[in-house]
Lab assay of single mutants.
Amino acid sequence: EPLWIRPDAPSRCTWQLGRPASESPHHHTAPAKSPKILPDILKKIGDTPMVRINKIGKKFGLKCELLAKCEFFNAGGSVKDRISLRMIEDAERDGTLKPGDTIIEPTSGNTGIGLALAAAVRGYRCIIVMPEKMSSEKVDVLRALGAEIVRTPTNARFDSPESHVGVAWRLKNEIPNSHILDQYRNASNPLAHYDTTADEILQQCDGKLDMLVASVGTGGTITGIARKLKEKCPGCRIIGVDPEGSILAEPEELNQTEQTTYEVEGIGYDFIPTVLDRTVVDKWFKSNDEEAFTFARMLIAQEGLLCGGSAGSTVAVAVKAAQELQEGQRCVVILPDSVRNYMTKFLSDRWMLQKGFLKEEDLTEKKPWWWHLRVQELGLSAPLTVLPTITCGHTIEILREKGFDQAPVVDEAGVILGMVTLGNMLSSLLAGKVQPSDQVGKVIYKQFKQIRLTDTLGRLSHILEMDHFALVVHEQIQYHSTGKSSQRQMVFGVVTAIDLLNFVAAQERDQK
């Protein structure tokens, strides 16, 4: 057995438009009618409502009807409940999964919650491996369901041993009777949507819809739904939504950006999952974080739909894509998950301010006199920076000697690579993860907040409520011999709460 199987392995699926269902090699399930009293909570997966979006479509000038398939009504709160249950049931049916076995899954959280929910009911041990950027709410729900959680670096490539995929496979090879159901490759993922989600949409719309818009992560949702719609409703256009920084969209030119990270969760990847059939997507749109969270908040405030950030991405694209539809036509959007997962993220004004998705003037509360002053007023001194090749031991000596707790790590040209902190280095040394002679590049981390000289002290204040420091950066445009230009970030300084307090105190003292 291989040590790991690539999540982007070539698909062996034989589905073709027009091929009889009787030739399918898979076990198919028909939607079942729910009894009045459910035998367990797993029976509350599927049969989610279709809700008309009344205000947002009109606000953006849509002539067509805009409908939302509300997947956050599933038992675990997301569309991923469907595939989690289906993968477990299919693994039980073919004898792969037996009582007492362990389920391991690399996930952005929602599939993990679905699997942990099913594992709690069915009696399996469950280990979820997820990147650090995923919300604390997801972690809390997983723990409450009895799952064990392993976190991995957000910026690790999918084929790196440190990625959530790599760590999951390492655990599988170490733990007896453990299984990775593997949402990236498992046919049960798109089949769950082909058999149930798509049929529900067709039934709820009486077979009449002209466009379907869905955000894409593993691709199982859009693949399964689109294949069924292509068979039953061939005139329906399928629109895929991919965040900026991901590479799922086609044509490839759409993916060209210097951005590699994004805040919206559960969609987009740096590889093409095996289950994603991009041939059934008629057109791709890219979405960005700001519009995703703005539209998610709009869905909550104006439509009462308590959905997550990827739902915002989907609707932001839908109001663009559906401009081509006329009166009497219908566009369906998939709202994948609930706001429950993001209470401390985009639902929080403070978080939105820190990330730059909300401006101070958007909030009406009274601010102190210094709130709208610029960061450049602080008069920061030149920063202490270190090269990635310097040793951890030497870096600790320098920081202690100069009285700093942290320093930016830059390359020879001064471009920011990340940050090192005294606390992080000492804990890594004590844990045996690094040696004093190791290069400081081994303990770089990139989960820090950046701020510009033109940003306000109010925004800085919000950042420092949650973080010990902020890195002050400025952009530099560099022209190359080819005539092309590129933008790079340079370090201007490091600012802490002490710097802000000293500035405010000094100004008030001078005024007296």
Rank of each mutant, 00 (worst) to 15 (best):
I300R: 01
A301T: 08
D242W: 03
K355T: 04
S486H: 08
G312Y: 01
F404G: 01
A505H: 06
H372R: 05
G356I: 13
L430A: 14
G414V: 10
I416Y: 14
L358S: 01
F503T: 13
Q323W: 10
Q450W: 12
A318F: 03
G309A: 07
Q256T: 07
N255I: 06
G240T: 04
E401Y: 10
V333W: 01
D362T: 15
P336S: 11
T454C: 11
S313R: 04
D499W: 01
F503L: 13
S461R: 05
E475L: 11
L464I: 14
N288A: 12
R297S: 03
L399N: 05
F469M: 04
G414L: 08
Q447F: 08
G268Y: 04
G403W: 15
Q302G: 06
T314E: 01
V440L: 11
V472S: 09
K286H: 05
R278G: 07
K283R: 04
V241P: 05
I334N: 05
I334W: 01
E360Y: 13
G403N: 01
A470E: 04
A407I: 14
P251T: 13
L430C: 10
N288V: 07
V315F: 09
E412V: 10
M466K: 13
E377M: 15
R488A: 11
T261W: 08
L384Y: 05
G423S: 08
I239W: 04
R488W: 13
V386Q: 07
R297F: 01
K449W: 12
A413Y: 10
E252Y: 13
Y445W: 05
P408W: 11
I463W: 01
T260I: 09
D270M: 06
S338L: 01
M490R: 12
M490G: 13
D455C: 13
A382Y: 03
T395A: 12
R297G: 01
A321W: 03
I398M: 14
F503C: 05
D349V: 09
F492A: 15
L347C: 14
P368F: 08
H468N: 14
I238L: 04
A322L: 01
G393N: 06
A249L: 05
E401N: 14
E377C: 06
V375C: 09
A311R: 01
T314Q: 14
S313C: 09
P243H: 08
A497P: 01
I267W: 01
F285K: 01
L457N: 05
V420M: 14
R400F: 08
D270Y: 05
H480T: 09
V473I: 01
E303M: 08
S381N: 08
G328W: 01
K446N: 13
I334S: 01
K484P: 14
I477C: 07
Q476S: 07
L387V: 08
K320H: 05
R488G: 12
A407G: 12
R350S: 15
E258A: 01
R297V: 04
I300S: 08
L325R: 01
H480C: 10
L422K: 07
P408T: 04
I398L: 11
F503Y: 07
G309V: 05
L380N: 03
V420T: 14
S287F: 10
Q439R: 08
V473N: 12
L358C: 13
I398F: 13
L422R: 12
A322M: 01
G493V: 10
V495A: 14
R400V: 13
K512W: 04
K367E: 12
T496R: 07
Q478F: 14
L363H: 15
S427A: 09
Q256V: 13
R297Y: 01
L500K: 01
Q376C: 15
M466G: 14
F357L: 10
H462C: 09
L384A: 01
I390K: 01
